[in-house]
Simulated scan of single mutants.
Amino acid sequence: MSDLNLSAVNSASARLLPDRAGIGLKPEHFEAILETLPAIGFFEIHAENYMVEGGPFHFYLERIRKDYPLSIHGVGLSIGGAAPVDEQHLNRLKLLLERYQPELFSEHLAWSTHQGHFLNDLLPVPYTQATLARVCEQIDSIQNRLGRSMLLENPATYLEFSESSMSEAAFITEVINKTGCGLLLDINNVYVACTNHQRHALDYIRALPLDAVGEFHLAGFATDYDSDGSLLLIDSHDAEVAPQVWSLYQAALALTGPRPTLLERDDNIPSLPILCAEAKQADLYLRAARQTKGAYHA
């Protein structure tokens, strides 16, 4: 980790999310949340939805933030891209973080911009030494600019680069070691990617720097088939968490102990009570992990 990046990490907020389950904050639920104050560990927002000065999103978030911890998740920094991080985007992000002082901030190991154009997707990167140097430089720059450490999320992937010279887990480990960032371990992404590439999901998790896990993500996936008829899973965020993902989550908790856990739903969004019930299921697993703390072997 560079000296400049160490300064950024040391100035990060001392507050942390509770080791409980949270849900994504959706406009469909703004008023119901304020009326009922559900027993949720935290809320998470996508930063890009709040990069304006005012409007109804800020009106409700300012009120909800008074009662709940907050995680802010970015989808637009394009950390894996060839170009430097967009300074205007980074400035807007810094203003948002200063305004709400979230307990955690996270972003994706992916790229979404090219030659000034934004692509509405999170695209994979080749795992090479050149990519590693570029990603570490980007993360150092982001952490220094924001004055806080961040979590990096493992991707859901559907193809791989032939020029990759290291595994994804080894790449992520190197990034964390060199930058001091943390890991957002998306269990659904692990299951999707490992199924698509015919790898063992728990072996992948064991190969990661599990002490760096600051948050879990859980979500639903869709099932499809590729051109040769092979099973293809899509990280769709439009369904409840699958039983296979719940099982993998329990196995991960046995390795890490309890961590803040987000239930993601970005399409086909159900009512607030349904989302809260799913979060309660995660809380049951977190409570069991808490009761067996000290028996973990990462």
Rank of each mutant, 00 (worst) to 15 (best):
M1W: 08
L4K: 10
N5V: 13
N5E: 13
N5I: 12
S7K: 13
N10T: 09
R15C: 08
L16G: 07
L17G: 04
G22H: 04
I23L: 11
I23Q: 12
G24M: 09
K26V: 03
P27E: 06
F30P: 14
E31S: 14
P38M: 03
I40T: 13
G41Y: 00
F42S: 04
E44G: 04
H46A: 06
E48P: 14
E48T: 10
Y50M: 08
G54L: 03
F57L: 05
F59E: 15
E62M: 01
R65M: 04
R65P: 11
L70W: 05
S71A: 15
S71M: 13
I72M: 05
H73T: 06
G74N: 11
V75E: 13
S78Q: 07
S78G: 05
G80R: 12
A82L: 14
H89C: 00
N91P: 00
L93Q: 08
K94R: 14
K94C: 09
R99N: 00
R99M: 00
Q101E: 15
P102K: 00
E103W: 02
S106W: 03
S106V: 02
S112F: 02
S112C: 15
T113Y: 07
T113W: 06
H114S: 12
G116V: 07
F118M: 08
D121Q: 11
D121K: 03
L122R: 11
V125E: 13
P126W: 01
T128C: 04
L132V: 11
L132P: 13
D140C: 10
S141I: 00
G147C: 06
E153K: 05
N154E: 05
N154K: 02
P155H: 01
A156L: 05
L159A: 13
F161K: 09
S162Y: 11
S162M: 07
S162F: 08
E163I: 12
S165I: 06
S165N: 05
M166Q: 14
E168W: 06
E168R: 02
A169S: 15
A169E: 13
A169H: 07
F171S: 07
E174F: 01
N177I: 00
T179L: 03
C181I: 04
G182P: 12
L183I: 04
N188V: 09
N189K: 01
V190Y: 10
Y191T: 07
N196T: 11
H197E: 11
R199V: 00
H200K: 10
L202Q: 12
D203W: 01
Y204H: 13
I205P: 13
P209A: 00
A212N: 11
E215S: 03
F216Y: 15
S230F: 05
L231V: 12
L231P: 09
L232R: 14
L233K: 08
L233F: 08
I234Q: 10
D235W: 11
H237I: 08
A239W: 03
E240P: 10
V241D: 07
W246M: 06
L248K: 06
Y249A: 05
Q250F: 00
R259W: 01
P260F: 00
L262D: 06
E264F: 02
E264A: 02
R265L: 07
D267H: 09
N268P: 02
I269V: 15
P270Y: 00
S271T: 13
L272W: 07
L272V: 06
P273D: 04
C276R: 03
E278Q: 15
K280P: 01
Q281A: 11
Q281L: 12
A282S: 05
A288Q: 14
A289S: 14
Q291C: 05
K293L: 14
H297L: 13
